[in-house]
Design a protein around this nucleic acid. Structure first.
Length: 313
DNA sequence: AAGGAGATCAACCGCCGTATT
DNA sequence: AAATACGGCGGTTGATCTCCT
């Protein structure tokens, strides 16, 4: 009954930190054969580990396309903005930071960013100033607007998830269907989906993140203005100041531009509502504009792209 | 210099959705 | 349709490192 196991359950499997020898075995095996079925990989590679452990070691540490080391300010900015929209969906956030793993992003959020936001008086869950924090003078209208926009963001999040799924399926179909595209063809050319609102042909690349090394990358609609940060949090020239700027300026700066053309009779409540809209729409714009590039990056960084085809064992 | 406290991060655990039989 | 395998995900743990007293 059911699918036959691809390997026998092995007692006395090794746990804990990986040794250089184990890393070498895993790396050599995957470079030569691809990972194939993770469950059966350890036996074939001569490792006394479970397949899950091997997969984790590969995806979080050994993969050659992983960027290690300190997160840049732009990466921090991206994480914060995406977390505001997606919550603790680290794998989704990681797709927008192609060289970072979800585990690394999760760790960085928990150990650095969450604490810094909290220290600034910003709730790291809701990304709004806490009621007891200085400068938190939210009106009822502001919160109603925020609630509405949060709902919008949730809806958008679900839509993005569906888009990503469609794109993945399209990619799998493209990879499975011979003949392969010529090497000169764009990596994501097979990702077009008739049901998707995404346009993989667009030159829109993810902005805001640390993609300065990506040719053609555009900037995210995020503007950092010391003034708006200073107004909300007081003048501090430190890192929290930068973070506050990230959080606030996407709304404040955007709102300022709109209000320049709008009636000066707008009520304070409407202004705050507009700021909230600006905050969320900037995030949504960023994610939308990044979908094509992140999926492209996914295709480029997909291990299948640089590993030999998985042979039949 | 010692050791205690807090920070960091690699790795594990358990759950879930999907694929397969 | 049910049972099971498998891969992926997010939460949590624990070993190690760093800082402070």
């Amino acid at each position: 009954m059911g699918r036959s196991p691809c390997c026998e359950k092995e007692a006395r499997l090794k746990k804990g930190p990986w040794t250089p020898e184990e890393d070498q075995k895993l790396l050599a095996f995957i470079e030569q054969h691809g990972h194939g079925c993770w469950r059966s990989l350890p036996a074939k590679a001569g490792l006394r580990r479970c397949g899950k452990s091997c997969r984790l070691r590969w995806t979080n540490y050994l993969r050659p396309d992983i960027k290690r080391g300190k997160f840049t300010l732009q990466e921090e900015q991206t994480i914060i903005q995406l977390h505001a929209l997606l919550g603790n969906r680290w794998s989704a956030i990681a797709t927008h930071l192609p060289k970072r793993t979800d585990n690394e992003i999760k760790n960085y959020w928990n150990t650095h960013l969450k604490k810094r936001l909290a220290k600034m008086g910003i709730d790291p869950v809701t990304h709004k100033p806490r009621a007891d924090a200085p400068g938190a003078t939210a009106s009822g209208a502001r919160y109603r607007a925020a609630a509405h926009l949060s709902h919008t963001a949730q809806w958008e999040s679900a839509r993005l998830e569906a888009e990503a799924r469609l794109a993945r399926e399209a990619k799998l179909r493209a990879l499975a269907s011979p003949p392969p595209p010529p090497a000169s063809a764009p990596a994501a050319s097979g990702l077009e989906s008739p049901t998707s609102t995404l346009s993989f042909s667009e030159g829109a690349m993810f902005a805001g993140a640390a993609h300065d090394d990506v040719p053609g990358a555009a900037r995210a609609p995020v503007v950092l203005t010391p003034r708006s940060y200073g107004e909300a949090f007081g003048e501090h020239g430190d890192a929290p100041g930068f973070l506050a700027g990230v959080l606030l300026d996407c709304s404040v700066a955007g709102a300022e531009q709109r209000f320049a053309a709008a009636s000066t009779d707008a009520s304070v409540g409407e202004q705050q509502e507009e700021e909230d809209k600006g905050y969320w729409s900037s995030i949504l714009n960023m994610v939308n504009s990044s979908m094509s590039s992140s999926l492209t990056s996914e295709a480029v960084t997909d291990p299948a792209m640089y590993l030999p085809a998985v042979p039949e064992f």
